[in-house]
Design a protein around this nucleic acid. Structure first.
Length: 466
RNA sequence: GCUCCCAUCGUCUAGAGGCCUAGGACACAGCCCUCUCAAGGCUGGUACGAGGGUUCGAAUCCCUCUGGGAGCGCCA
């Protein structure tokens, strides 16, 4: 039987990197085994599910390239099917109507807590034969009373739960709508999911799901409960560090493959390798190799990986990303060749595309003044002769190419008997407004002769006045 | 409280009894390279939670403790 995995987020909060990682593991596993990856939106909680969160899931998955082979399926559109199974369960005695009120249940709970017991439903309505007037019943699954359930997990090994620890969970609310644990079971069965890969916060309700699956006579899937991702401080992932919408990472200038690379290395490794292409991840990843322990999110390493991926990408591949970031800065460019040239010049010196765009403004827009410290040091009366000499040499250059520019700048330094730095820095400040840019020859080539000469002229005037 | 899970540098990890005076990566510090910033190279410090076993030998196996996490909803 071929592998079928699924990612089943609920649109009650923004999809964040924790969710993305389980999605990635599921997707990778399906890819590795030429299987099918299903996307299912678990939106049975009408109160808390939002359109916006659903859109983030869809857009996020698309941005990351984690395309679904089937779906998205929405649980809210499968209500008929759930009702069918519910009826079957009641008929077969696997489920029953419970008329206990919320007040009664909460009283039961507080008594149990006071007695230092685990709160659980006591089964009062199991043997009730008559409805209770004025109470809309919920439906509970009649969990086996004795014996145990063993979850065979490829990451954690066999985990045994006693049925006496489990209680009769509610599978349909008093308004008739089915609940999470029940829908998951029906869906995983109907969608013929072979491998359930999800966060290990679900390990505890897996035995209940297995009991229901058994009651349905379904084949059990293979389980893989992956460890959670913690915040940078080792505490639960929160908004302050990482629990933001995945799309936030696009805004921040991360490459999808870099984020995926970072995430795949959380709980998984392949020797000493740190940088993985998408193709490598697909061929090397195996869910059984995933660690058991939770890991903390480390923004620095994500940054480093992003830079590694930027460096290894072809300039052409960076074009759309850089354009996106330039557009965010209000810079519209239609010259893809120039964007590629800039990307090529900058790809070694930016940790994010956002940073690259910020540092590349001067290639596309006029500079608005000079950095104060930079000008004070480099655009002085003493630098005027340098700027003059450079201007003259560059104006006379037959070919506007980095190699020729390099030679010209070197010549000026030699002629004036100063270090290359004394020449390159004033030019750099003149054309970029700052002391930081790619190598000066490359910078000028990309900038073009006309703009270069204009800016040197302007800088010369500024230096004279200083 | 009960049940379940987890435990190697600050962080991500290698390690499946001798190859470990514990390896790699991020971060940090220093040096080199150098027209700036980077990238790159080299060097450095820091870890097997504690205690008991098993064994000729334990980071690796077992037990206890400690610490962390999850679940126990008419949430998912």
């Amino acid at each position: 039987m071929s592998v079928r995995t699924r990612f089943a987020p609920s649109p009650t909060g923004m999809l964040h990197i924790g969710g993305v990682r389980t999605a990635l593991f599921s997707w990778l596993y399906a890819r590795r085994h030429a299987g099918t990856f299903v996307l299912r939106i678990e939106d049975t909680d009408r109160e808390r599910s939002t359109e916006e969160a659903t859109q983030v899931i869809l857009d996020g998955m698309e941005w990351l390239g984690l395309s679904a082979d089937e779906g998205p399926f929405y649980q809210t559109r499968r209500m008929g099917r759930y009702g069918e199974v519910l009826a079957k369960f009641i008929q077969s005695g696997h489920a029953y109507r419970c008329y206990c009120t919320k007040e009664e249940l909460s009283e039961m709970r507080s008594k149990q807590e006071a007695a230092k017991q685990k709160p659980r439903y006591d089964g009062t309505c199991r043997n009730r034969t008559e409805p209770r007037a004025g109470v809309d019943p919920v439906i509970r699954f009649a969990n086996p009373l004795d014996g145990s359930v063993v979850v065979e997990d490829v990451i954690h090994g066999n985990v045994e739960f006693q049925n006496t620890e489990l209680d009769d969970l509610i599978i349909a609310r008093s308004d008739g709508t089915p609940t999470y644990n029940f829908c998951v079971v029906v869906d995983d069965m109907d969608m013929q999911v072979t491998h359930v890969i999800r966060g290990d916060d679900h390990l505890n309700n897996t035995p209940r799901q297995i009991n229901m699956l058994k009651a349905l006579g379904a084949t059990l899937p293979v389980y893989a409960h992956v460890p959670m991702i913690l915040g940078a401080d080792g505490a639960k992932l929160s908004k302050r560090h990482g629990a933001v919408s995945v799309l936030q990472y696009r805004e921040e200038g991360f490459l999808p493959e870099a984020l995926l690379n970072y995430l795949v290395r959380l709980g998984w490794s392949h020797g000493d390798q740190e940088v993985f292409t998408l193709a490598e991840m697909q061929s090397l990843f195996d869910i059984g190799d995933v660690n058991k322990s939770a890991s903390a999110f480390n923004p620095d390493k994500l940054m480093w990986l992003n830079q590694q991926h930027i460096m290894r990408a072809t300039p052409e591949a960076l074009v759309p990303h850089l354009r996106f970031q330039l557009a965010m800065l209000g810079i519209a460019v239609d010259d893809d060749a120039k964007v590629a040239a800039v990307a090529k010049a900058q790809q070694e010196r930016a940790k994010t595309l956002k940073e690259m765009a910020q540092n590349s403004r001067f290639f596309f827009a006029n500079i608005d003044g000079y950095d104060e410290k930079a000008a004070k040091k480099n655009l002085t009366p003493e630098s005027v002769p340098v700027l003059d000499a450079v201007h003259a040499r560059l104006a006379a250059l037959p070919d506007w190419q980095a190699s020729a520019i390099h030679e010209a700048v070197n010549d000026v330094a030699t002629t004036l008997n100063v270090g290359l730095g004394k020449v390159a820095q004033p030019i750099r400040v003149a054309v970029s407004g700052t002391t930081v840019s790619p190598p000066i020859d490359v910078t000028l080539e990309v900038l073009g002769r006309q703009v270069t000469l204009e800016r040197i002229d302007a800088a010369r005037k500024f230096a004279l006045a200083a």
